[in-house]
Design a protein around this nucleic acid. Structure first.
Lengths: 196, 196, 196, 196
DNA sequence: TATGAATGAGCCTTCATTCAT
DNA sequence: TATGAATGAAGGCTCATTCAT
C-alpha cells in the first residue's frame, strides 16, 4: 500500500526486525530475507531504504547507541547527585534488557563484528568513550581527577564484564538484576576507596 | 603421498590456520578455502579430519581452552601461595596475546557465536566455570567461603571486562599489559577488602 | 501539478535522456531509474508514456531514424545535383556526431540488440533499405541501373564500415571527419569507375 | 565425475556454450545459468574456472580472436603471393560463419559492449590493428607505402561494412558469400587503382 | 498528470560438501 | 592419506513493473 511519508515508519520496522533477527539467529545467520519477512515487507525494500544490508546493520547499531543515550538523558534531573548519576549509568547499561529483551544479545554480535568492520568499530569506540567519559565526569565530583579516571576505567570494565557474563550465560532476568546489583555495589566501593 | 601418522600433524596445522583466519577475517568470513590455503593443504582435508567446518571450529575452541588450562598448570609449583596463584590466573588470561597475537580476537568471535551454537555455548560455559572455580578456590584460602565466591565473581567479571576493552580497542600490547596490571591490583584490593 | 499538453514535452525529455544514458553506460546498463533521473522525472512516468522500458527504447530508435531522415530532406534543394545528393547522404550519416555527440555510440548498441529483438530489427532493416535506396536513386542518374545498384551496395557498406571503425576507435571528431572524407572520395571513385 | 586434467576441456566447453548463448540470446540475456546449462555443467563451475562471468566473456573473446589468427596462419604457404594473401584475409574474416555459424552474431555483441568495457575495448583494438596491419603489409608489396596504408584503411572498412550488413540482415550463407565476393573484387579494384 | 513506495523474480557470486581418483 | 573438480543451495543486490495517492 504505497503511501507518502512512510520512510521513517519503514526504517524503524526494518531496524526492529534486524534487532530481533540478530538476537535470534546471530549476525551471521541474519539474512535480508529473514529481516524482511520479520518486518512483513519485501526483501527489495532494504536496499531501497538503506542501500543494502550493510547500511541497515549500521543504522541498527546507531539506533541502539542513540537509545542508550536517550535512556541516560531522560533519567537526569537538575537535582541528580553524582552518586545517583553513576547508578543511572549502570541502570541504563543493564536495563537494555528490560526495554527489549533481544537487544542484549544483539550488542555482542555487533561488538564481535566490529573487529573486522571499520564503521562498526568506529561506532563501538564512540560508545566505549562515552561510557568512560560519563563515568569519569561523575567520579570527578567525588575524588581527585586522577583517581576519577582510574575509577572510571575500572568501573567501565566491571560493567562490561558483568554484562558480558550475564549475556553469555543466557541467564534469565534475575542474573541481570544480580549483575546490576554487583555493579552498583562496586561503584560504592570505588567511591569509598578513593572518595575524599 | 600418503603417509601414516599424519593425523595429529594435519589436525594442528588446520587448527592453527583456523585461529589465524578467524583473527584476520572474523568467523563469518572464515571459509574452509581460506583455512586450507593458509594451512597449505586442500579443502577436502577438512572434512576428512574434522567431518566438516563445524567440527574444525569446535576443535579449535577446545584447543584454545586446553591451552589456557595448560598455561595455568605449568605455572604451578608445590610452593605457590594463593596470592601467587591468583596472579598466575590473571597472567594466563592476558598472556594469550603474547603466545599468539591472533588468539585474542579469535576468542571474542567464538564467544559471540556461542550464543547461537549449542556446542560452542557448552564450551564457553566450561571455560567460564573453570575461571570462577580457579579464582574461588584461591580466594577461599584467604577469606570466608561466601566472600570468596563474591570475590571470584567480581574478579572474573573484571578480568573479562578489562580483556574485552583491550581487545575491542584494537590496541597494542601496552594496553594489554596495562589491563593486566589493573586486574592484578584489583585482586589485591579484593584481598585487602575481604581478607581476614 | 497536473498540466495538460505535457505529453510531447515529457516524451522528448525521456527520449533525450535515453540517448544520453545508452551512450554513457550502454544499453545493458541503462535502467529506467537512470533514464528518469537524467530526465529529472520519476520512474513511473516511463510506463505512463511508453508502457514500459521496451516502448521507450523503440521510440528512441524511431526518433533517431526520423532525425536522420530529416537532416537529409532539409539539405535538399530543387537544384541539388546527384553528386551533391550523394555527398549530402554521407554528411547526414557522419554528422550525427556533430548534432549530438552521444548519438553515435547509441546506434551501435541498438544495432547489436536488433539481432535479438524483433521490433528493433524491423527498424534497422528500414534504415538499411533507406540508405541503399537513397544511394541507388542518386547513382542511377549517373550510371546504368545495375551498376548503380552495385555502387549503392558498396557505398553503403563503406559508409557503415568507416562509421563503425570511427565509433569503435573511441576517437575524437577528427577521426570522424577523416572517415567522412574517405567516404566522399570513395563515392567519387565509384562515379569515375562506373559513370558513363 | 571428478577427474584430473579436466581444466582445458571444461574451459572449452564453457567458451563454446558462451558463444552459442550470446549468438542465440545476445550478450545481455546470456546468464551463467544459461551458459552452464548449455554446457551441461553446474553454474558454480564458471566461477571456478574463470573467476566469474566477466572472466568467461573475456576468455571467449580471446578465443575468437586467436581462432581468427589461426585460420589466417594456416592458410599461408611459402609461395603465397600478396594478392593471394589479401584474398586469404578476406576469407578468414568471412569464413567465421562456416566454422561455427553462431560466431558472427557473437562478434557484434562483443563489439557493441566494448564501448563500455575496458578489457573488451582493448581486445577489439588489437583485432582492428591486426586486420589493418595484415592488409597494409600485403598492399605494400603492390604499391607505394602511402597508397598501401590508404588502401588498407579502405579495405578494412569495406570488410567490416560488408560483414556488418551481412550479420544485421540475418541473411543466409548466400549473403555472406555474396559479400565475400564483393570484398574480393574491391581488393582487386584497389590494386588496379593504386598498383604500380 | 505525476509520483515514488513496494514488490519479487532473476541475476551473479560464494561456499560447505561430496567424491572419484 | 590427500586432492581438487564439481555441485547446488543460499546469499545480497538490481531492476522493470505496479499502483495508491
Amino acid at each position: 500500500m504505497p503511501k507518502v511519508g512512510m520512510q521513517p515508519v519503514r526504517r524503524q520496522q526494518l531496524i526492529d526486525a534486524t534487532i530481533e533477527s540478530v538476537a535470534e539467529f546471530g549476525l551471521q545467520a541474519t539474512t535480508i530475507n529473514r529481516i524482511s519477512k520479520k518486518a512483513g515487507l519485501s526483501s527489495g525494500i532494504i536496499s531501497h531504504y538503506f542501500a543494502g544490508k550493510q547500511g541497515l546493520i549500521e543504522a541498527t547499531v546507531r539506533y541502539l547507541l542513540s537509545n542508550l543515550k536517550k535512556v541516560l538523558i531522560e533519567g537526569l534531573t537538575p537535582t541528580t547527585t553524582p552518586e545517583q548519576r553513576l547508578m543511572l549509568i549502570i541502570e541504563a547499561n543493564f536495563s537494555r534488557l528490560q526495554q527489549q529483551s533481544e537487544t542484549t544479545k544483539t550488542w555482542l554480535s555487533f561488538w564481535s563484528q566490529s573487529m573486522h568492520d571499520y564503521e562498526l568499530h568506529r561506532l563501538q569506540i564512540v560508545n566505549s568513550r562515552r561510557l568512560f567519559s560519563n563515568l569519569a565526569c561523575s567520579f570527578k565530583q567525588l575524588m581527585s581527577d586522577d583517581d576519577a579516571k582510574l575509577a572510571a576505567q575500572l568501573c567501565a570494565a566491571m560493567i562490561d564484564g558483568l554484562w558480558l557474563r550475564a549475556v553469555l550465560s543466557k541467564s534469565d532476568e534475575n542474573e541481570f538484576e544480580h549483575c546490576e546489583c554487583l555493579a552498583k555495589s562496586y561503584v560504592n566501593s570505588l567511591i569509598k576507596q578513593y572518595g575524599a
